[in-house]
Design a protein around this nucleic acid. Structure first.
Lengths: 345, 345
DNA sequence: TAAGTTTCTGAAAGCCCTTCCATAGAACCG
DNA sequence: CGGTTCTATGGAAGGGCTTTCAGAAACTTA
């Protein structure tokens, strides 16, 4: 029914081995035979059967990506880096959106099915202990992005330096009363950003007002959400407390929610409250947020490259790379009085 | 090396056929034998080899999705519907981000490789003629989302009704001088929205001011971009012309760009200019945009269901379904004076 | 109890490819 | 020109599974 190499072999009067060699550009075929085979293959509109190839080659040229919170802008951009890099080398990408622990585990199991994928990329989710051994035993390449485990390759953003830079930027603008609007401490990112914020404040001899530090109790997206930011800010305003003059916010989406709360209460940004957030997701510029940029596209790119190296050389030493986020100054911090809305940012 | 059904068969003292039957829940196996096999399979931590299964079953349980402009919020949400529906039935999804015509064609070719995928989902891109025949010949299921071809199943949003509803909403608020900020007419969506806008204006006996109709010349994303909206609005303001009191904008992202341009020029929304846009992407609510909601998640869901039906029954009649967008009233249109920022929208 | 059914099982065939091995023939060498 | 080396080639084996087929075993029935 579908045309196979046997059909080509018959029509071209050669053996299937020769057809296969031609199709795989093996050098040991005469030009004459090659032409004959190529011609027939074209005429029959031959398409190789991907699974048969994968089975014979023991290679699927496919990766899977397990990603939490599918609509999250951070992941979308990392994913883009992954996709483009993969496309360039002819790999396919299977996407798994994991919103719960069960889903995560199911997808991990699926990714370990022999042969299905050559490797899996895990984003921002902690690798359950049970799987550690499993992945290692089965020699199933695993690369972690925005999460960490000593036994696997990983790519992360340096939250400590990022939070430090953000805080110091506010300090450099003269702020002394600085709060932090944080995500849920369940998340490692939130934890690291908070402790670095505190250290930086101390380093500069500034008081840490515990009442101005909000760790979200939201569990959805670990509190990295607009709602979390909105709620935290509304709560603070309602409390009637005197507000700090600046906030370090643990993500752009939270800052966006916070912005809405402030607007509703006629509190101006940056005049009354200056804000520096984290991520630089695409829409951060829509809101003129000063924020710590994570090189998302590049992270995806590097993740794929690491994976391909790992597949080539399974016993290479494990590597962990940290990206340093960079400060992107827009108008929410008050540094840039003449900020003009523009696309170059 | 990896454990196969042969290993299980040996250990359990049964034939491979029996192992396969147990693993596939075939009814004709005694409970006793079944238990024996299951026990051994568990003990050996057996994982079926996906490709070998696919090869034997002539089914891959995998779909591919070809999607333009990877970061576009519309697609992200449709994709989520696709992903979740697919996950529920144990299918995998391969993602192809096509930004150019060449990429589109390459991915279409790849999707047609025998066996690779059971079907492909094409989003918002016109199917090149060459492929029409090809897909039909090879009986390779293809479902179109947000695009159309008479020979394939498709799912679309009714742009005509959507634009009509949007325009009539502005009219109902008393506006008589209404402009349209449109995307590039190259795109079918832009074309349909424009002509429906015009018809609706005429229907209500209102003048169409051609000078207030802007068709973007941007090619990136066919002008469905923030930049396109920003540029168009800035251009109009600079021209010094008297502005209409309301605009129908062909997408949320354009409206967001337009909003920035207006803000820079101290033009208030909705007081000076009312806006109704199209899409209701997730961030539309961040900007309080009144907009036409497309049921994106559902579109993804239905697309998958159609695909699965098509796979089951390749000769079923071709179906084309149209979703009617619904008006979501927020504050940009001026209808809702007491609009409170809230998550229920 | 013999014949006829039904149920379960093992093994072979088949899915389509890559790769290894053996061989035929060409090319080379002294 | 016989013997050796090399190259191109055909075909079998193998990858791991599903499914068909035939036979064995268990069960009915008269």
């Amino acid at each position: 029914m579908a045309v196979t190499i046997y059909d080509i072999a018959r029509e071209a009067n050669v053996g299937i081995g020769t057809v296969s060699r031609v199709l795989n550009n093996s050098p040991k075929v005469t030009t004459e035979t090659r032409d004959k085979v190529v011609t027939v293959a074209k005429r029959l509109n031959y398409q190789p059967h991907a699974f048969a190839q994968a089975l014979a080659r023991k290679r699927s040229n496919t990766l899977s990506a397990i990603i939490p919170f599918f609509t999250n802008y951070f992941f979308i951009q990392v994913l883009q880096g992954v996709q483009e890099t993969l496309a360039a080398v002819g790999y396919d990408l299977i996407i798994h959106g994991a919103n719960t622990q069960e889903q995560l585990e199911e997808y991990l199991v699926r990714s370990m099915r022999k042969g299905r994928v050559d490797g899996t990329l895990l984003f921002s989710l902690e690798l359950p202990d049970v799987f550690v051994e499993n992945f290692i035993d089965k020699k199933n390449p695993l690369v972690l992005v925005d999460t960490f485990h000593p036994l696997f390759d990983s790519i992360r953003v340096d939250n400590v330096i990022g939070a430090k830079k953000a805080t110091e930027h506010l300090i450099s603008l003269g702020h002394t009363s600085i709060g932090m609007l944080n995500a849920n401490l369940k998340s490692v990112r939130a934890k690291e950003r908070l402790s670095s914020f505190k250290e930086t404040m101390q380093l500069h001899g500034l008081d840490i007002h515990e009442e101005f530090i909000f760790n979200s109790t939201f569990t959805k997206n670990d509190g990295f959400s607009r709602e979390a930011g909105y709620d935290a800010m509304i709560g603070l305003i309602r409390s009637g407390a005197k507000l700090p003059t600046a906030f370090f916010v643990s993500s752009d989406v939270q800052a966006i929610g916070m912005l809405a709360a402030l607007r509703e209460n006629q509190i101006r940004v940056p005049e009354d409250i200056a804000i520096v957030s984290f991520d630089d997701i695409e829409i951060a510029k829509f809101f003129d947020l000063t924020t710590m940029r994570q090189p998302m596209f590049e992270m995806g790119e590097i993740a794929v490259k690491k994976m391909l190296e790992r597949i080539e050389n399974p016993s290479a030493p494990i590597s962990s790379t940290n990206f340093t986020p960079t400060l992107v100054v827009r108008s929410s911090c008050g540094a840039n009085k003449n900020y003009i809305f523009s696309d170059s940012n």
